[in-house]
């Protein structure tokens, strides 16, 4: 098989693709293939990594045109066509690169973010949207002596969203983020929703309203790419849908009063 890897660093006039031949052993991941390249063939290849167990969110990249974590994506199932995800397509993600899906695995940086070097992108804009939703718990009541009580079923619903590892895969898969640089994006909105449904939180309604804007809850076009690519099963699209329902309900109640 061949790993076809996007290469770009400062000073290069335009990006190129390097192709590395290797044997795909069972269980071998894209991340371990990248390490093999870096250690044995070309030590200038750049990519982020840390946990290698799909929990830290460092290694999200575009693999066969789908944003995925390199550490949890194995080569052999990709080549066998077993891990196809059909995304609602758009130009930034479906750019004109030719590759043979039976022989090649195509590895590129996440789109919508500036490339620093090879597969390393500048995540500043992604994290700026996260900061903008003010992701800090703010209870109204003073801290009790012990823990605040929580119903286990509330925890289960919250966990859907606290599981987000901020890897940026959803942001990269979102066609709205591709065309609207102001759209908060799925990860930030899912994180915001987590505070809107935390029964301990003091500003739930206020928070819901902070994204009651064309670039917040209302920016989503329900392509559902976010939910498909999330490596942790987080469904931002569900959060956005429920937030909209809640806002409509609030407005209606406001009119009736």
């Amino acid at each position: 098989m061949r790993l076809k890897v996007f290469r770009h660093r400062q000073g290069m006039s335009e990006p190129r693709y390097d192709t590395f031949e290797m044997e795909a052993a069972p269980g071998m991941t894209v991340l371990s293939a990248l390490f093999k390249i870096q250690e044995e063939f070309d030590d200038s290849l750049a990519f982020r990594y840390s946990c290698r167990g799909a929990v830290c969110g460092s290694c999200a990249m575009l693999i066969n045109k789908v944003p995925r974590l390199a550490c949890r994506t194995q080569l052999m199932p990709l080549l066998a066509g077993e891990q196809e995800i059909s995304l609602s397509g758009y130009p930034a993600i479906g750019g004109p690169v030719s590759w043979d899906p039976k022989e090649d695995v195509l590895v590129e940086p996440l789109p919508h973010l500036p490339v620093i070097c090879d597969l390393v992108v500048d995540m500043t804009r992604f994290f700026a949207f996260y900061r903008d939703i003010d992701p800090v718990f703010s209870p109204l009541d003073p801290d009790p002596e012990k823990e605040r009580l929580m119903d286990p079923s509330d925890v289960r619903e919250l966990e859907l969203y606290t599981n987000c590892i901020l890897c940026g895969a959803c942001f990269a898969a979102c066609p709205v983020d591709a065309k609207n640089p102001r759209f908060s994006g799925p990860a930030a909105l899912a994180s915001l929703y987590r505070f809107c449904i935390d029964p301990r939180e003091g500003r739930r309604i206020e928070r819901l309203k902070t994204a009651d804007t064309p670039d917040g809850w209302w920016g989503c076009e329900f392509h559902a790419n976010c939910r498909q690519v999330c490596p942790r099963g987080v469904p931002p699209i569900v959060a956005i849908g429920q937030a909209r329902q809640e806002i409509k309900k609030q407005r209606k109640e406001g009119e009736e009063m």
């Binding site: 718990f137 012990k146 823990e147 009580l149 929580m150 925890v155 606290t162 935390d198 301990r200």
Partner: peptide
């Protein structure tokens, strides 16, 4: 443990609502 809870950390809960 309680300090983290007061900062908003989500812990698994018993039916009683306690951590």
């Amino acid at each position: 443990v309680r300090e983290l809870e007061h900062m908003g950390m989500v812990w698994s809960r018993l039916d009683s609502g306690r951590i």
